[in-house]
Design a protein around this nucleic acid. Structure first.
Length: 414
DNA sequence: TCTGGGGTCCTAGGACCC
DNA sequence: TCTGGGGTCCTAGGACCC
């Protein structure tokens, strides 16, 4: 029987803030999403006060203030840095590991591992002491079961919980079906209508019925609950299939020039990610949204394009994006959000060569060399040390609001 | 004034082909 | 009058995840 461990960082964003501000330890803390939009991480103390996940900040702000909850604007760059420290440490415990998300990793302990509970406790100690992040660890035969085990671990004293072949039935029968990884709100409601309320009920249901009602994904979840692995560990990161960069803007934008600059920033950021993965984009979509979702007047406009030969330089990406933006923008509207998606990737080195390598081809090659050079400089100096002149000398009112940002000690990456 | 941002996979149905 | 059989590819929409 294989042994899969899911290592999950507790209240990850809050725990990251606490590394740099130890005064927050033991106090109720929440972290906000981009643009201070809603709550995306809560400390145990904040959870105990009944502050819900995903709650819009503006709505709950008076309550947070009254209860003395400390509010932090999200600082994703810092969380990513902490995450990579955690992942590096975890990778020392096995050669088969999947980085599942910014705060979770599956580790395959193999069949002949030493006592898995002991190993898990050591991981907890080391990550806690060396990085400063508390983690919970679930152990079981499949990814779906280990995910369930890690939820139980969070509520247990030692932060480690194992589901064995013997204990599985009891655990599943006492777990609501909506707490199973892969069963969302819609499926849980459907299952409820059929009298399936616990993970145990679901595990015992006829597989043919599950296949029919919930597609092969549902069937895989069911098999995994029975201890039959269906979801392999993805140990080498796969290249992305799409790259999206979009933002809700700090204040509504009306002029084409402002919208243009705001979207341009997104395009440049998407281009950086694209080149980092050594990919070229075969298609691009640009979108803008105006008005607010719950006000009467709002709308969504998008345009997309395919490239005969995939592109990767900022010059070409920006040119195409701005051309599309010109088509979907209309004056007199208050735009609140926009962004870009790149798709249909191929490896940048394996693109087809042009039949006629003429001056246009030369120009493209030059643009690509330039983008790569700019990437190198920006990576070394951090942030956007070099950026298009069009973005200079603007007041950048599209930048998301971050009213509660606390500076952490700067880590220079020179 | 007001509710984030970034992904993946699956399926059904249409277009099109031989 | 009445219309085969089989296949691929693409897209939109749904569901789920962090």
């Amino acid at each position: 029987m294989p042994m899969i461990a899911l290592c999950d960082c507790n209240n990850f964003f809050v725990s990251c803030e606490r590394i740099y501000r130890p005064a927050l330890i033991g106090k109720p803390v929440v972290v906000l999403s981009s643009n201070d939009g809603c709550i995306v991480s809560r400390s145990d103390e904040a959870k105990a006060m009944g502050i819900p996940m995903g709650e819009p900040y503006f709505r709950i702000e008076p309550l947070l203030r009254a209860r003395g909850v400390i509010v932090c604007s999200g600082n994703l760059a810092m969380y990513k840095e902490v995450s990579s420290k955690v992942m590096r440490l975890l990778s020392g415990f096995t050669d088969k590991m999947e980085e599942y998300s910014i705060d979770e990793a599956f580790l395959d302990f193999g069949i002949a591992a030493r006592e898995p509970l002991e190993c898990a406790s050591e991981i907890r100690r080391k990550v806690g002491r060396w990085v400063g992040i508390p983690v919970s660890i679930g152990l079981a035969a499949t990814k779906t079961l280990s995910k369930l085990a890690s939820d139980k671990a969070k509520k247990s004293e030692g932060g480690v919980f194992q589901i064995t072949a013997c204990s599985a039935k009891g655990v599943l029968d006492s777990t609501p079906v909506e707490e199973v990884w892969g069963i969302g709100r819609k499926s849980a409601a459907m299952l409820g209508r059929w009298g399936i309320f616990t993970a145990g009920d679901f595990a015992r249901k006829d597989p043919l019925w599950v296949r029919k009602m919930m597609t092969v994904r549902g069937l895989m979840t069911q098999s995994e609950l029975s201890g039959q692995p269906c979801l392999p560990l993805v140990t080498a990161p796969l290249p992305p299939k799409s790259i999206q960069v979009s933002r809700t803007w700090g204040s509504p934008l009306e002029s084409f020039d402002d919208v243009r600059c705001a979207v341009m920033e997104n395009v440049i950021s998407a281009g950086q990610s694209l080149r980092k993965c050594r990919l070229a984009a075969g298609a691009m979509e640009v979108f803008i949204r105006h008005g607010y979702r719950h006000s009467g007047e709002c709308g969504y406009f998008a345009d997309s394009v395919r490239f005969g030969n995939p592109i990767l330089s900022d010059a070409e990406l920006v040119h195409e994006a701005m051309r599309m933006l010109g088509k979907i923008y209309s004056p007199g509207r208050r735009y609140t959000q926009g962004g870009v998606t790149l798709r249909d990737f191929c490896e940048s080195s394996s693109r087809q060569r042009e039949l006629w390598e003429d001056s246009a081809y030369e120009r493209r090659a030059k643009h690509e060399r330039l983008s790569r050079a700019v990437d190198m400089i920006n990576e070394r100096l951090g942030g956007l040390a070099i950026y298009p002149a069009a973005l200079a000398a603007k007041d950048k009112k599209w930048r998301p609001r971050v009213k509660h940002l606390h500076a952490e000690p700067t880590v220079l990456n020179l």
